[in-house]
Design a protein around this nucleic acid. Structure first.
Lengths: 230, 230
DNA sequence: GACACTACTCGTACTTAGTACGATGAGTCA
DNA sequence: TGACTCATCGTACTAAGTACGAGTAGTGTC
């Protein structure tokens, strides 16, 4: 969205720049996770020595701020026109997809105190869509909070699934963690695992569309009730 | 829930034990956050030297596992009888309250691969309540995922609010972050801040009950539709 | 009462982080 | 050519996690 022209390098001498640092960090975190992301390893990944990085960013915190802003930049914004419900829906779906690509980011998205341009722009565009709905302000605020809570929480749960969400891993993990439990102590956990999680075709992600539509339906119903009440 | 008898200390000599380590860590994290929680600082907090701690826990990861299990232990479980909706509702409210007391815990609740007894027991009790609802399995799975996603996501957002959620802090933060933005660049952000967030009596938390009821209503409606369809 | 034993505590030190400070060297322009 | 600039990096300091093994204070035994 915010187009990252590679322009501003007037001095071509340097092979590195802030952009490459941030994208390198993003790649690294996607592959290895955010905890293993250290300045030294990032430097290796970028083919430079650790201290070189500090020429482009103030410190590690600034790198994380920048990474989160890159993530926000990837999220599809609701179009400036069209039905609000479709806009909110597709933005929510996009947010979820982006968080699947960057599972380490979920807990950080709303907790950074130094929002970047893409972050602010994204939130502004989302608010624009909500405002366009014509819903009463109270409902807009509720909708905003509930939809985002749902998407972030869902992403948090998806991130906790044994990686890749390629069936096999999940099956394996379920069998390793749940089934060997002391016999009979957690009957419901075992039952649910066996008759649902371990069934062929099981897909946690299916609950996403279900939940999102459930929430949007509920909001529209509330809007109708609200309208009738005046 | 899992009652933590101080019994198993047959040798009274030691002033420390695993329990005190974990509770100390919990207190520390509640007060200072989880990042500042280091073995050295925890040792200070407990009045011992760092290496003493390792007599009671294998390593820092084990401390975090234990802390999360303590948090799960604080969550009110749905009672073994009574209406499922009330059980799910009060458990969700309790989960949210617990996560408010331990905001650092939210991202970790579902991502630890070494669940403790309280964690497993909690999930088993929640599943029991869902099963008691008599909803079709597919709906149970959706309900489970959607309610938890909502609560965790909501907690994540609440944790991101300038601490204490004592009005003043939030007002201050909103004024410091949003209002000084480049004039006119984020009209919706500014508008929403002014006409909603900065209004007297604003309370983000109100959206919790709204969202939770919206989801539960939606589930009941889906259950009715499902029943009619057979 | 002396002694060995055990459980707990801690001192020391090694490894891996973040990063301050200043040196080096390559290109640029006068 | 020499002064200047800027990107890169070497060195080193501080703070983490924690391995290893030494001290020590009770306890039970003869």
């Amino acid at each position: 969205m915010t187009d990252t022209t590679t322009a501003e390098r007037s001095h071509v001498r340097g092979s590195l720049n802030r952009d490459r640092v941030l994208h390198g960090a993003l790649e690294f975190a996607d592959r290895e996770g955010i905890e293993p992301l250290t300045i030294r390893r990032l430097a290796d990944h970028l083919g430079v020595k650790p201290m070189t990085i500090y020429h482009y960013v103030a410190n590690k915190e600034a790198i994380i701020d920048g990474m989160i802003d890159l993530v926000f930049d990837e999220i599809e914004r609701p179009p400036a026109d069209g039905a609000w419900r479709a806009g909110i829906r597709s933005r929510a779906a996009s947010l979820r997809e982006v968080l699947r690509r960057h599972p380490w980011a979920t807990p950080l998205m709303e907790s950074r105190t130094n929002p970047g341009a893409a972050t602010l722009g994204h939130h502004d565009a989302v608010l624009a869509c909500w405002y366009r709905s014509g819903l009463p302000l109270e409902l807009i605020a509720h909708g905003l909070a509930v939809v985002d809570a749902f998407v972030y929480g869902f992403a948090l749960q998806e991130a906790a699934l044994p990686f890749g969400d390629h069936q096999g891993d999940l099956t394996e993990a379920a069998e390793e963690i749940i089934l060997p439990l002391p016999t009979g102590e957690h009957p419901n956990l075992v039952r649910f695992t066996q008759e649902h999680v371990l069934q062929p075709g099981y897909d946690f992600g299916r609950s996403f569309d279900f939940g999102l539509d459930l929430i949007l339906d509920g909001l529209e119903a509330a809007a109708r009730r609200d309208e009738d009440a005046r």
